[in-house]
Structure formats: C-alpha cells, structure tokens
Write a protein that binds this DNA or RNA. Structure first.
Length: 605
DNA sequence: CGGACAAGCTGA
DNA sequence: CAGCTTGTCCGG
C-alpha cells in the first residue's frame, strides 16, 4: 500500500495532472527511490481508488502540509516536454479547454522510452534559395506567403529544412492531411534529411517510433493537425502549408487551431513561423506580414476559371448542365462535377398546383433520397426524419417537379448527356470503390475533391449553393473550394486544366477573384464586411451551448467589453474586441457541472 | 470521471 | 425502515 522507501531522508515529491479531462486539478505524489522522472513524463497514479494516467508538471515540489501522499504507481515513459506542457496551459486559456485534453494530443501515441542526447539549439540564417520570393518568406518572422494553387511549395519546405539543419535545429511542417504529410516526409527523406512523420496511427504502432524520432534526432518533423503538439526540442522554424484549410481546426471542443498553436509555439521559442496558402485566411493576414508574388507570377499559378451564367441557359438542358459543361463531359479528359447536395431531389413542387412539398410534422421542405425503380419514392424530411407518400398536401396531386437536383439524379442525367458511365462520390462512398478509379466523369459533393487528387477539369454545377450560404465565412470557404479545384486540375492537366463555375451570380467577388487569380480582390470585399458586421477576425467570438450553458453564462455575468448575445437555439454568443479580453473573461468563470461546449473561434455561426 | 456517502422517495 | 434512486462532493 504505502511507500516502500524508508522513513529516513527526504522523499522526492512531484506534482501531476491526471489524464481525466473532468479533473483539472493538480495532485502531489511521492517518487519511489531510484526512479527517474522528468517534467512532462507520463506516469500512472492511484487516484480515489482507481489507476489513471497523469503528467508530471513539476519536480521537487513542497507538498501542502497535512496531506498524506501516495507514491507514483509507475513511470510509463517520456511525454511532452516542458515547452509543450506550457503550450498546453496557454491553449487551455486560448480555447477555454482543459489542459488534459491538449496533453492527450501531445502525448506519444504509445509508451515512449528513450534517452535524450544533448539538446543543442540552432536557429541559423536561411541560406538564399536564389528565389527572391522564398527568401523574403523565409526572412519573415511571421510570414504569410501567398502562392497560387499550381505553385510548388516544396522548394520552400526544402530550403527551410536545410537552413535549420545547417544550424542543428528542427523544422516543424504542418499539412492539412495525413496523406500529404507522408508524401512530403518521404520526399524530404530522399534529400537525406532525417524526417519524423508524426501522423498518429493509434497506440503501439510505428507512430511511437516517429514521435521518439521527433523528440530526439529528427531534423524535420512533418505531420497534420496533431503534429502541432509533436516534440521538437531544437525547434528552429515552423511552416504551415495550406493554412486556410479547415482541417486544422478541431471540431470537438476545445476547438483549437493548429496554425494558432504553432504560431504561439514559434513565438515562445523565438523562431520564425511562415504560413502558406493560395487563399490566406483573414485571421492569418491579421497575424502576419503578407509576402506575395508579382501579379503575373501569381496569376500564372492559377488555371483558367470559366464562369457560366446559369440565367442564360439552354432550357432544354435544364439549369445544371450548360453547353460548356456538356462539351467538357463529352470530351476525353477526366471531369469532376461538384454538387453539394446528396440524394435525388432536395426541393420538389407539385406539378399541378406548384406548391412546395413540405413536411407534415415540422413544415421543412422535403425531398427524395433513395433511387427506386422509376416511380417516386417516399418524401423524407431531412430535419425531423418523418416520411410520407408522394402526394401533394394542397391538391392531392401525385406528380412533382424536381426543383433542385441532388447528386444521385444529377449522375443519371449526366450519364445520359455524356454517353459514358458516371461515378457518384459522396462522403459515404466506400474508399476503394472501383467505379471511382475507372470512371472518366464523376459527380459528387465536395468529398469528391478530397477523393480524387487530379483531373483535367472540375465543374461546380451550382456554385450559388456555396456562394450564398448563410455562414459568415461563406466567401472564404467558397474561394478555398475553387482553389482546391484549381490545384486538382493543375496536377492533372497543368496549364490546360479548367475550372468551370455555373452560377447565377457571376459577378460575385469570389468568382471575380478566382477568374483573375487574385485573392486580394476577395480580401478587399470580405474584410470591410467582417469589420462592419463585427465578425472575426475584427472581433473574437465564442459560442457556448449544452445543458450547462445557462449556468455558465449566468456565472460569466457581464464582463467589461464582452457582449453576451442570445440564447438562440440554446446557444449564447460572446463577442469581445480581441482574444485577450474574451479568453480572460472565459477563464474567470468556474465551470458548472454538466455538458458544456465552448466553441472559441467558431467556423460557423 | 467515477466511487462514496447522504438525502429523498416508495412500498410493505 | 430496507432498498433504491438522485445528488453532491472529492480525489494527493
């Protein structure tokens, strides 16, 4: 039961944080004699009758008098070092989360046992690359490098890695996806660099080895979102590729953003951080110094973006299929058609009385999901799940007009138009579906752009769906979608690649910017709008929801400079002029018991 | 979080 | 008043 060590002499005492997110409290434990512990190590402790994991926060602490201490049950292995521990503390403030939830991400994927060598810190001046733009980016302390979608980011990564290596330092590189991290990592390894690819594959896998590599001998550490927390004891530089990608933000609360985590990490380490994107977010532009290529160079890195006005269409082809699109799908290149609506029909009107089909129960518009043999399937409500036979509630008519085609129906119609098999891809399509690999023409939701890396053309069948959505980041998100399509065709067809956009708002700033390959155009229209409406990044926001939200908002009160709006659908919105004000106010509130979601920097409102 | 223990409700 | 649910507290 109690410590095995003798009573003579002084027992070492460490302070730990249990790996139980609900307990954000520190406890003191005795260290058994002859056991080595370091700050950040992962240990096991007996807490209230059960064994749980914990992190060592501090060594040789003075325990509060009158508390009977237990001994550590076990030292499991090395964990995040002191720098990452402090970073977790900062992140807990910045995203109103608990330290344990960040440390879980930062801990090695398995049990890590290793000994550290001597950690020499090297910063090193970048060696000139011969490319004026890259040199400018690498010279910036906080750089936002804008590169068109077709531009190769590899020379930048390589130059950064080599410069850091020269001085004995490490370069941390983030990519939006694990696949990209692996691709980039392998390419860097072929240069002779020692690369740790930190892309967690679950406990006990090769990932533990990569984590140890990052903590010890690696010269470059590459990974996706979670790699923001990877060890890098000799950090010399940070790069974030495709900084605008929403995959960098965690969806679950705490909604931390990897770009912001590594930017803070670089700041604390006193090393430069460069983020790269064809369409830098307004957040990034507010944070760093923009480094942009010349107009001609940037435009040259955008493929041709053709905009088709759907208001002037051939009525015979229907609203989704312009003559230009028909040309594309009848050609011989690989064409991806994007339509962000699943199912067959999302909006139906009675063929007789023209009434929109609505749900009997909740009044939402109803559609048809399943593909059945010829006749109409049941009308299904996407909101409440109710279904009913396809009969008009107004006039009893049984025939409906499809006002908004879904992907399934669009596939059938495209197949007829293109006279070739057309594959359908949605988020639920099996990863190894053979039709996806073989089809020349594909139609799907934006999941299609994630699934298929290269194509000759990408066509957005109904861009207004993206352009006119009621989200505050709509324009940025729509532009990022076009940029992704642009990269897909740049990879597939180079200068001959085509992006086709069908829309009823051809003069939308997103489309003007895309046509000209000039993201600054979009910033010029979006930023003043966000400022005028008091939206991020002109302000800092948080959305509080969950059963404990009323108690939380009550406890928050009305701090100076924080506006509390709501509740709307059980959620409150908190708006402050900046993150310091917002996060300080959030940190001052004691969490009431119960489910609570605090979403700092919400992607949607 | 999850166990411990106290305070409340039910039924014979 | 046993037997059970529900709530509150606390962990080294």
């Amino acid at each position: 039961m109690s410590a095995t060590a003798g009573t003579a002499g002084r027992q070492r005492v460490v302070r730990v944080l249990p790996d139980v997110p609900a307990i954000d409290k520190e406890f003191d434990y005795l260290v058994p004699d002859g056991v080595a512990v370091h700050v950040g190590d992962v240990v096991r402790i007996e807490l209230h009758g059960r064994r749980v994991g914990a992190w060592v926060l501090a060594l040789d602490v003075e325990p509060e008098p009158g508390v009977v201490l237990k001994a550590l049950a076990k030292v499991s292995g090395r964990g995040p070092g002191p720098e990452v521990l402090e970073l977790a503390e900062w992140a807990a403030w910045r995203w109103a989360g608990r330290r344990a939830s960040f440390l879980r991400t930062a801990a090695p994927p398995g049990v890590a046992r290793f000994t550290t060598g001597t950690a020499s810190t090297g910063r090193g001046e970048p060696v000139p690359t011969g490319d004026e733009l890259l040199d400018r980016a690498l010279g910036a302390g906080r750089g936002v490098l804008r590169l068109g979608p077709a531009a190769d980011r590899y020379p930048l990564v390589r130059a950064a890695a080599l410069a850091a290596r020269g001085a004995g330092g490490q370069t941390l590189v983030l990519c939006p996806s694990v696949d990209e991290a692996w691709g980039l990592g392998r390419r860097l390894r072929r240069e002779g660099l020692r690369v740790a690819i930190v892309a967690s594959d679950g406990p006990g896998s090769a990932a533990t080895g990569e984590w140890i590599h990052a903590a010890t001998t690696a010269q470059v550490v590459v990974g996706s979102r979670a790699a923001a927390w990877a060890p890098a004891p000799r950090l010399a530089r940070v790069l974030v590729l495709d900084e605008h990608d929403e995959a960098y933000q965690q969806e679950r609360s705490p909604t931390w953003h990897a770009r912001d985590v590594v930017a803070e990490r670089a700041r604390r380490a006193g090393v430069p951080c460069v983020v790269v994107s064809p369409c830098p977010s307004l957040e990034a532009l507010a944070w760093g110094e923009l480094v942009e290529p010349g107009r001609g160079a940037e435009r040259g890195a955008w493929p041709r973006v053709e905009v088709v006005d759907q208001r002037e269409l051939d009525p015979g082809l229907g609203p989704l299929f312009s003559p230009r699109l028909v040309d594309l799908v009848r050609g011989d290149g690989r064409v991806l058609c994007i339509l962000n609506r699943t199912g067959r029909a999302r909006l139906l009107a009675c063929a007789t009385c023209r009434t929109i089909a609505r749900c009997e129960v909740c009044d939402a518009a109803v559609g048809i999901d399943g593909v059945d043999d010829g006749g109409l399937g049941a009308l299904a409500c996407g909101r409440c799940g109710a279904t009913r036979p396809p009969v008009c509630l107004e006039c009893g008519g049984a025939r409906f007009k499809n006002l908004r085609l879904g992907v399934s129906r669009a596939r059938e119609e495209l197949e007829a138009l293109a006279a070739t098999p057309v594959a359908e891809v949605t988020a639920t399509t099996a990863p190894e579906d053979p039709a996806v690999a073989s089809a020349r023409v594909l139609v799907g939701t934006e999941a299609l752009l994630h699934r298929v890396p290269r194509a000759d053309a990408v066509a957005f069948l109904d861009m207004d769906q993206e352009l006119l959505a009621l989200r505050y980041r709509t324009a940025e998100q729509a532009f990022a979608l076009v940029a992704r399509a642009a990269r897909t065709v740049a990879r597939g067809a180079g200068r001959d690649g085509r992006v086709l956009v069908q829309t009823r708002t051809p003069d939308h700033p997103v489309l003007v910017a895309a046509r000209l390959g000039d993201p600054a155009r979009l910033v010029a229209s979006d930023l003043p709008l966000r400022r005028a409406l008091g939206l991020p990044p002109a302000t800092a926001m948080a959305v509080v929801s969950g059963e404990a939200a009323p108690a939380y908002v009550d406890a928050l009160g009305h701090p100076l400079d924080v506006r509390v709006q709501g509740p709307l659908d059980g959620a409150w919105r908190l708006v402050a002029p900046d993150h310091r004000t917002l996060c300080d106010a959030l940190a001052a509130v004691e969490r009431p018991p119960g489910r609570l979601r605090i979403e700092v920097d919400p992607l949607r409102l």
